[in-house]
Simulated assay, not measured.
Amino acid sequence: MARILVTGSSGGLGFNAATELASRGHEVVVHSRRSSRRPAEGAAPWLGAVFGDLADLDQTRDVAEQAAAFGRFDAVIHNAGALRPPDAVPVNIVAPYALTALMDKPGRLIYLSSSMHRGGFTDLRGLGSGRASYGDSKLWVTALALAVAARWPGTTSHAVDPGWVPTRMGGAGAPDDLAAGHETQAWLATHPDVEPATGGYWYHRRTQLPDANARDQRFQAQLLAALEAHTGILVG
């Protein structure tokens, strides 16, 4: 049995992943922006819930404090996402970075990426302005996942492209399979034999080669330095 936090789990892929994991007997802590949007329990109850708007750094810090009350997590799925500026940068990259730095190191970290990361730019000036695109933010969070994999030998870290699925963000006409959209995250959070064990970029349980910029160690170092300067939080 694993203890797992899933951010952005009031609906969509996050809710589906949390529901699947809880139905398997895992202790799942869900997250939503407001307590009024606490995810409804399905076939199995949640261990608990944390609340806070991940577009706001102070509230993100508070989410980390709330999560600490549950002890160390075996896995954290950074599922929460925003499609458009100005929320795309704080939700898609700043919050995952801050939560990663502030929480006790879990056994496994899973970060939600997108195929659109391949069109993202490495110009980090958009980090502070909030004017960076969705693709930029997904390039950066993919680089963050790979940087953590290289720097934290005791924690596995992966990025996942869930596909373009028919959620509220993806839209009703999205062509990819909704069930397949969350299964890889749940699998990576709990399966005992994942190969590669860390540093993978996944799509439907298969690894792909992410954009070269995400794999560039110099860019990874630049990104971590920019995030530290932006948040005042250091990843150990």
Rank of each mutant, 00 (worst) to 15 (best):
T122D: 14
A225Y: 06
Q208I: 12
R37V: 05
V194W: 03
A212Y: 10
H204Q: 15
P153F: 04
S32C: 06
D53N: 07
P153L: 12
R206Y: 03
M103C: 13
L124S: 01
A221V: 01
G232K: 04
L146E: 06
D104L: 09
A179T: 05
A229D: 13
V235G: 15
V194P: 10
P85Q: 14
I77G: 10
L5E: 00
N92H: 09
A180H: 01
L227Q: 04
V89N: 02
H230Q: 10
G71D: 10
I93V: 10
L234A: 15
G120C: 07
W46M: 03
H31F: 14
E27C: 12
P45I: 00
G173K: 04
A67L: 07
K105D: 15
R34I: 02
L102E: 12
A186M: 09
G154T: 11
M169S: 10
P45W: 01
S35M: 03
R108F: 11
D123G: 04
H117D: 00
E20Q: 15
S9Q: 01
W202K: 11
R205H: 02
P90E: 03
I110T: 07
N213R: 14
S133T: 04
R168V: 12
D74E: 13
S32K: 06
I77V: 13
L188T: 09
A149H: 10
A49G: 07
A69T: 14
L47C: 09
A44H: 01
I93N: 11
G200A: 10
A49V: 04
T156H: 12
R205C: 00
P96V: 08
Y97N: 02
N92I: 00
Q66I: 07
N213C: 12
V89W: 02
R72F: 08
R215V: 09
L188R: 09
G128R: 13
Y111N: 06
Y134H: 03
I110D: 08
G199I: 04
R125V: 13
L21S: 01
V63W: 07
T156C: 14
V63A: 05
R131K: 13
R118F: 04
R24F: 06
R84Q: 15
A88W: 05
G52K: 02
A143T: 08
T190S: 08
Y201L: 05
G173Q: 14
H204V: 15
G200C: 11
N16M: 06
W152D: 13
Q66S: 08
H117I: 00
T142P: 08
Q185M: 12
